[in-house]
Each structure stands twice: as structure tokens, then as C-alpha cells.
Design a protein around this nucleic acid. Structure first.
Lengths: 122, 122
DNA sequence: TCTTTGACTTACCAAAAGTAAGTTAATAAC
DNA sequence: GTTATTAACTTACTTTTGGTAAGTCAAAGA
């Protein structure tokens, strides 16, 4: 194994792959993006209903980081009680096909994977 | 928002998207797969050198779960000190293009995202 | 006999995520 | 004119997940 390959994934700063996976390899980001793609416009509590297993705390954190990355747009109305609407940005929308291709693969292979996992008992 | 959409991502069991993301949305799986794709055959300690930020513990856990899912193949030689070689399975290999398409997107958008994130200060 | 070697485990500690309660301010109900 | 309600979050606390460093195992070499 040569030296260049050895260093390729070594440190986070200089490794684009690491940068990507650190950003989207979290538990909720991709799922939230898929939901936004599905509904176009959606409010905080509606997302929470659709993904009932996410906590409000983590939904807030996830939305904030997606907004910071410019993947979603947050529009707040000056009303009380507050109304906030989330939509995909263009950048976010351009990511969707790539995520969906992953999901398709997973759907196609889900059964086999589940069988493998059941057979593997150690 | 209609009822069907509301339920779509609701619970883990019945949601294929959730199943996928729970499986590959962990911190290390995709990166390990990419490394295996890069080198074809590789030993435990070599992976650890290439991804120096992963702990031995998590590398062991990750490899075990990838093996359980039938995405990688573990070949152990009856030697001492032990020798274990890891390779992608066919199933694992079929996943690689989808991961790479995500990585390409990320490379293309990395700079802009970094700028957005820097500009976002709250 | 003692050290080295590679692929892991284990015990302990730190960081991330989950839970449930609290905050805010205007309108509605009593 | 208090009290309750409402949406989008925070905060304090607990649990789960991941990181660190040391330990294990068995043969071959010094």
C-alpha cells in the first residue's frame, strides 16, 4: 500500500470525503431533506409529526445546521404564536437525487440485507 | 398535509427510508466501504492507518456490522499473529457508485457550503 | 524465558442524543 | 382581568453512543 493512499483519508481537514460524511453522516439530516422534498413547504411541528421519532431538540439542531449550510430556507412570519416555514433551497434540491439513489439501492437490497443479518449470529 | 404522508416516515419498522438511514447513517460505515473499494484487499491495521481518526473499537464494530449485512467479506488465516483480510462483497460493491455520487456532489458544493456556514452566525 | 506481532476486547470516560419541562407573547375563553 | 392556548423552540437532566488506553491470545524469534 503506497504512502499517498495511506494519507488519503487520514485527517478530516484535508479529506473531502471525510468532510462530506461528517456533515451528512449524522442521524437526521438526510431524512429531513427527504421530507422537505416530499412536501415542498412545511412547518416545524409538521416535520415533527412526520418523523415522530426525532426529538424536538434534535429537529431544531438539524434544521439549524441545514440552514447554515444553505440547504434549506427558513421563513419566519411575525405572528404569535409563531409561524415558521421551511423549504429546500436550490442547493438542497440538487442533493436530493443523490440521496434518492441511495434509498433506491437500499430498498432493492433491504430484504437480502435483513436475511444476512439474521443469519449472522456471533 | 394528508394522513398518508403524515405516516410515511413515522415509524422505523415500516419505513424503508428510515431503515436505510439507520443502517448507513452511522459515523463510519460509508467511509470504510469507500476505503475497501479503493484498495480491494486490506487488513485491519491498514484500515486503521488509512482512517486514523477511527478508534480500533469502532473499526471493529463497523466491520462486524458491514460483515453481518453481507457488504464486506472477512477472510481469516490460521496464523499467529493473526491475519485477517477484508474485501467488498458484490453487494457492497453495488452500493459504491451511489456513495460516490454523493461524494461527488459534496466535492462540487463543498466550497459554497463552507462559505454559507461561515456567513451564518447566530 | 521474554519480547514481538495483529486483530481484536474490555473498562473506563467523554460526547452526542433523548426526555420532559419550561419560555415567549398575543389572542381567546372564562 | 386572570387563565388557558398555541408554535417554535430552549434548557436541565438522563441515557446511549463513541473514544481512550490498556489488556488478551498464542506462536515464533531473540
Amino acid at each position: 500500500m503506497d504512502e499517498i493512499l495511506l494519507k488519503k483519508y487520514a485527517d478530516v481537514e484535508n479529506c473531502p470525503v471525510r468532510n462530506v460524511l461528517d456533515r451528512f453522516g449524522d442521524k437526521w439530516s438526510t431524512l429531513v431533506l427527504l421530507v422537505l422534498d416530499d412536501v415542498a413547504v412545511i412547518r416545524f411541528n409538521e416535520i415533527h409529526k412526520m418523523i415522530d421519532s426525532i426529538s424536538q431538540k434534535m429537529l431544531a439542531v438539524t434544521l439549524k445546521s441545514l440552514e447554515a449550510d444553505g440547504l434549506i430556507i427558513r421563513k419566519q412570519y411575525p405572528e404569535i404564536p409563531p409561524r415558521v416555514e421551511y423549504t429546500l433551497s436550490e442547493r438542497g434540491a440538487s442533493l436530493i437525487p443523490h440521496i434518492k439513489s441511495l434509498v433506491q439501492w437500499a430498498n432493492a437490497n433491504f430484504e437480502d440485507i435483513t436475511k444476512s443479518r439474521a443469519a449472522y449470529k456471533k
